[in-house]
Design a protein around this nucleic acid. Sequence first.
DNA 1: GTTGGTATCTGTGGA
DNA 2: AGATACCAAC
Length: 763
Amino acid sequence: MMEDNYLDGLNIVQRQAATHTEGPVLVVAGPGSGKTRVLTYRVAHLLEKGVKPWEILMLTFTNKAAKEMKERIHKVVGPSADKVWAGTFHSIFSKILRVEAEKIGYPSNFTVYDTEDSKGLLGSIIKEMNLDKQVYSINSVLSRISSAKSNIIPPTRYAENEELLQQDKLSKRPLLYKIYANYVTRCKRAGVMDFDDLLYRLYELWHKNPDGVLDKYRAKFKYVLVDEFQDTNFLQYKIVQKLVKYEGSPCNVCVVGDDAQSIYAFRGANIQNILDFEADFKTNGIQIFKLEQNYRSTDHIVQAANELITFNMRQIPKTIRSEKGVGQRIRLIKALTDTEEGKRVADAILEQKNRYHLGNKDIAILFRTNAQSRIFEEYLRRYNISYKLVGGTSFYQRKEVKDLIAYLRLAVNPKDEEALRRVINHPKRSIGDTSVDKIAEIAEQQQVTLWEALPLANLGGKTQSSLNDFIRLIQSFVKKATDTNAYEAASFVATESKLTSLMKLDTTPEGVDRLDNLNSLLDGIKEFVESDLEEAIEVNDKSLASYLQNIALVTSLDESKSGDDSVTLMSVHAAKGLEFASVFVVGMEEDLFPSFMSKDNAEGLDEERRLFYVAITRAEAFLTLTYAASRYKNGKMRYLEASRFLEEISAAHYDTDLALKSKSSEIASNFNVATPTRASVQGNFKKKPTSAVPAIDPSTFVPSPSDQIEVGHKVLHLIFGEGSVKNIDGQRDKRVATIVFPHLDEPEKRIMLKFAKLHIVEH
DNA sequence: GTTGGTATCTGTGGA
DNA sequence: AGATACCAAC
């Protein structure tokens, strides 16, 4: 065997986690602890043991992660790696549903709605129900529906659930349950699944188990692995459970996650899953492995992250240790404006490149919101530093691309209402809103789709003949899509829809760009048709339907090409799982990071803190945090305070020049400044900010030695004010105190005594 | 129905 | 700042 060979690179715990293949396994893996290695070698080990690749199911959160994992397994075991079922929850389930959809009343060529489509449909429904769109805002309705699906509550049960109905009444949206029911009916009638449906309908399929379909998949997937388990929602967890937990099951399921890196609660992810997993599989002999050794970052970074996360309430206790020595301290840059922030970051990048011989690809700029990228792009361009922007608007989300795709979607499934609405009057053919409204009304009366209502419409005159032309046009597309391959069909659609000729009329630079994009889309389809790279788990189907399925779940993250030497610009969310020698986390300001949206509740704030934790733990050697005192927002200059998170890392980890001399007073004073603007803008529904505690003058504050602090002491904290020590756990310099600050919204804080600045008021 | 103008509002993350 | 909403004139 070559086992010793490929397992050599693992430490003891990693090796145990990788080779303990039978029965349920939970791997709690801190940042940089070799989680991906463990998963890779675990799969390699299974294959070495003779498990067939198609018996292994590995679920990840991004296509990128899945692809990377496959490539790494390939390196160890060769081409059999390609036949492992590895992909995102959404893409794997979508593949299964293509095969099984008819068992639950969907066509096998169902359309996938993206968020924009879902919002469009909800907009129509709200309008048709004559509801106030201010009150029934699409975003809140959609998130409500999404969360119902993620918690496996179908419309019928929603309508009977007193608690949910009460919540909707309180938020002045008592009819939400009806919108939900309508939305689900309309999706199903149109042969459409939204992102949540890809999970929900698979659950439904397995739950109803027609023709023993569940047993088929239980028998097929003998080993199940889930990456980033902390980001799964209830529904995803239940699906995994359906697959592996049943009478007589070997429960060969391995989940890997880090509660401290859970950053998708906004999408319904539930950290509780990771805690429940342990309880749920206790009787099946669950094994838990904790990877606490950090191989990525130097000690100041690791310790700063450790300190930061103790400010959160719930967590699995673990101590991450660095392997790489003390390293550099964190550098803090305060700029006066957002523009200056951009310049100083570009300056610092130049300096680091010269001083430490870093390549562009070793450097990343991470921000909380994608909108922040522009200034950095400008300065990097000006300094001639090559960069790549990851995320943002995907190619497939550009207007002109979506337009053609809408026609293609119609060609495959003319019942697709959102696609129909998008193109029925584009290019202009005099079928305007009033006509569409009339057709929609007929559709509603007859309980049919828009497409089926088209021939029933009686619009008269020019509009009617133009409508008839449109119907014939789409029918010809449908025929083409069934008769020919994706490329032939798409070329036909592009010309016959007149989209190309319309675009050729626009000779502005932007117009030329748009035409280019359209042609790249067609090139992409051609490539799809001509590619022989038959992926193991895919049928070699070159139809338009197959192409659309392929691109439905492609995100902007998947499009960035690697290999070139560029500075990476991306959101913190997008950076999860990645690492860079030097990381700049920019925009460290209150209301930006933490985001103002998340500040009114403790969970939201904790999630932002975990997000910041993810951000700083991306750095291997150099970490720079920047903030600006003012920046433009909605066309207006706004003044900002430094982020509270900066204070939650002790001064010991900041660069001495900047930190010890000026930092503590500078940041602390930023904290306690009154902010009348924020209070008055948001005062009507936000609680008072937690930072509104009695101000303490940092220059006269004298911390007591940490080893003198004991349970029962009354202490003074620079930021939190007065509190009493409730409990202390850990030994010596790892002691963590639970301190109650009664005047705070979240009175209980866990503070690492080694770094805390606490003054004993009373023994 | 279309076009082109002005007023108004919005305010994260991403499969 | 940028998108969307709304309105008046063709």
